[in-house]
Structure formats: structure tokens, C-alpha cells
Design a protein around this nucleic acid. Structure first.
Length: 119
DNA sequence: GACATGACGATTT
DNA sequence: GAAATCGCCATGT
């Protein structure tokens, strides 16, 4: 287990990521980079992905709505089943083709919009 | 304490 | 235009 020092940072980071992902409207998708940018990280996209890994314990975190900047479902293999991600997205009305979100540009939801407008 | 890895992104060659 | 490389911060070994 990490020391308290990292624990604090980790908690803040994960909390922010989970909160943002949770705020993603149904039928919308966002990207790791967008979330990272909201947290103030220039390129913390990797960390966001790491946080998503921890999201396995957070049932209320729709990690399936988080894709890479290309709209590609890069993390589908980390789900319970390789198809769970696209299946869920399709269920919410999002079309997925070849592990990629259709009309990704249109469905893209920018957390900065909410965070910035809210704060 | 150092090295290697990770569901990414942007920049440079 | 495509490929290779660096950067980012945290985690695991």
C-alpha cells in the first residue's frame, strides 16, 4: 500500500475522475484527455485510464462512456466481458462500429463545459 | 529508492 | 502522411 502522501493525491484524483465520469449524460461519451484537462493535467490521460481501472469498485462509474481521443473503445478488454462496453453503449443509443463510437464528434461530451460552467 | 508499466495525448522526425 | 518519441502522474514490483 502506498504511503499517506500518495494516498491523498490518489484519492483526490480518483474522486475527481469518478465524479466527472458519473456526470457524463446517458448517450454521450467523453475522452481521457478531456477529463485530465479538467483536472488541470496537461496530459494526464494515462492517469485517467488508471483511475478507470480503480472504477471497477465504483459501480456508479460508467467507464464505458469513456473512450480515447479517437472515440475508440480501447478499454473494452478491461470490462467484465470484451463486448460489455459496446453493448452498453449501444443500449444507451450510441452506435459502435469496430470498437469505435459512431458520430463520436457529435456525441462527445466535454466535462470542462459542465465543470467550467458549474464552477 | 529505482525501474518498469499503464484503458493516452501531443509533438517532432 | 505515417512512425517514432517524449511527456504526464501514479502504481506495482
Amino acid at each position: 500500500m502506498p504511503k499517506r502522501k500518495t494516498e491523498k493525491s490518489r484519492e483526490n484524483f480518483f474522486a475527481d475522475v469518478f465524479d466527472i465520469v458519473r456526470l457524463v449524460p446517458k448517450g454521450r461519451v467523453t475522452t481521457y484527455g478531456a477529463i485530465a484537462a479538467c483536472l488541470g493535467l496537461k496530459s494526464g490521460a494515462r492517469m485517467v485510464g488508471w483511475a478507470m481501472n480503480a472504477s471497477h469498485g465504483e459501480k456508479n462509474v460508467p467507464a464505458h462512456r469513456v473512450v480515447n481521443r479517437s472515440g475508440l473503445l480501447t478499454g473494452r478488454h478491461h470490462f467484465e466481458t470484451p463486448t460489455a462496453m459496446e453493448e452498453r453503449l449501444k443500449k444507451e443509443g450510441i452506435k459502435v462500429t469496430k470498437n469505435q463510437v459512431a458520430d463520436f464528434d457529435r456525441l462527445f461530451w466535454d466535462p470542462a463545459e459542465k465543470i467550467f460552467g458549474k464552477k
